[in-house]
Design a protein around this nucleic acid. Structure first.
Lengths: 170, 170
DNA sequence: CCGCGCGTTCAGAAATGTTTGATCAATCGC
DNA sequence: GCGATTGATCAAACATTTCTGAACGCGCGG
């Protein structure tokens, strides 16, 4: 029915039906990426808000705790999915979403995929050492083949990521 | 009953150090993909075993329950990441891993990504309807722009997936 | 038929991940 | 300085996912 279209109280609470749907959409979205619900809620609300929002707005309108809002914003900043809104002379900082797919994909790759690829490479290296010590010849040959295969996977992955980013670059 | 030939300690239970490392590697791997630990353990053990294994082998060697092993195998079959070993006249079925990256990536996209993309498209469609009813003109324009952006994201995703599969096709 | 081996299912237990809320540190205006 | 406001931190509460194990159904060989 009646809601508060703009300024006045920034923290007019409760989401409208449409906003709720958008937020839920992003909740599902980030879930696929293995991120917590609150992160999706926050990004979703920022995404559908015409103006930047502050931490308190998120707390009020989403009904989540300050702790969740703070941690969620941190995660999103780390992914490059939100930035602090420029301008505003106020003390409190307002956030706005990054909406360019390229940027979002890039951040996700950089923060969530690369690190795993890299730590994986290290682990496989150690495994290689273990195999070199193996005595049984048949077994050694088998292990070498399989390990080589993993290494090949990792190299493929490393090669594909940049291409991926390009593909999403528009 | 044919037990495994000449496996020494391996037919019995407990993984060797090297096997443990490989299994852990895959546990990490599937975790990134949002799959449960047991799935990684099972695939990892199959991957590093020269011969196909039966459900009971997984239970014994990984120390997991029959329930987990059964469910994990089902998930992996769904992804096309394990297949039943051909041959064996025995009643019990043996499993071996699919090791071609193309196949693994394809299965993951088909089972985990596509469904989400598709259900996302449906939700966005509904949202579009909601926006068309919006009255405030400025707001309507803003919402239309944002929604269009999501639609663009989804189309990009749909276009990239096939390319991805090609890229991993060797 | 009957008993046994194999695998599945599912309710409840355990593990894991997320959110909360009190508390703290920092910064601002006065 | 001092109180007020903003945001970060982290142990504990809570929620969700995953695992377990007993019970079940099926098919086979005896």
């Amino acid at each position: 029915m009646s809601r508060q279209p703009e300024d006045g109280l920034r923290g007019a609470n409760e989401l409208g039906a449409l906003e709720r749907q958008v937020v839920d959409f992003f909740v599902d979205g980030v879930r696929v990426l293995g991120l917590p619900r609150s992160v999706g809620e926050i990004y979703g609300l920022l995404f559908i808000s015409p103006e930047p929002l502050a931490l308190d707005d998120l707390v009020l309108r989403l009904g989540i705790s300050k702790g969740s809002a703070s941690q969620g914003l941190r995660a999103l900043k780390g992914l490059g999915a939100v930035r602090e809104a420029a301008g505003s002379e106020e003390r409190r900082t307002y956030y706005e979403p990054a909406v360019e797919l390229k940027r979002l994909v890039g951040g996700f790759i950089r923060e969530q995929i690369r690190p795993h690829l890299d730590s994986g490479k290290v682990k496989i290296g150690r495994l290689g050492d273990a195999v070199r010590v193996e005595e049984d010849s048949d077994r050694k040959q088998f292990l070498t083949e399989r390990l080589g295969r993993i290494e090949h996977w990792m190299r493929s992955g490393g090669r594909v990521l940049p291409v991926l980013q390009k593909l999403f670059g528009e």
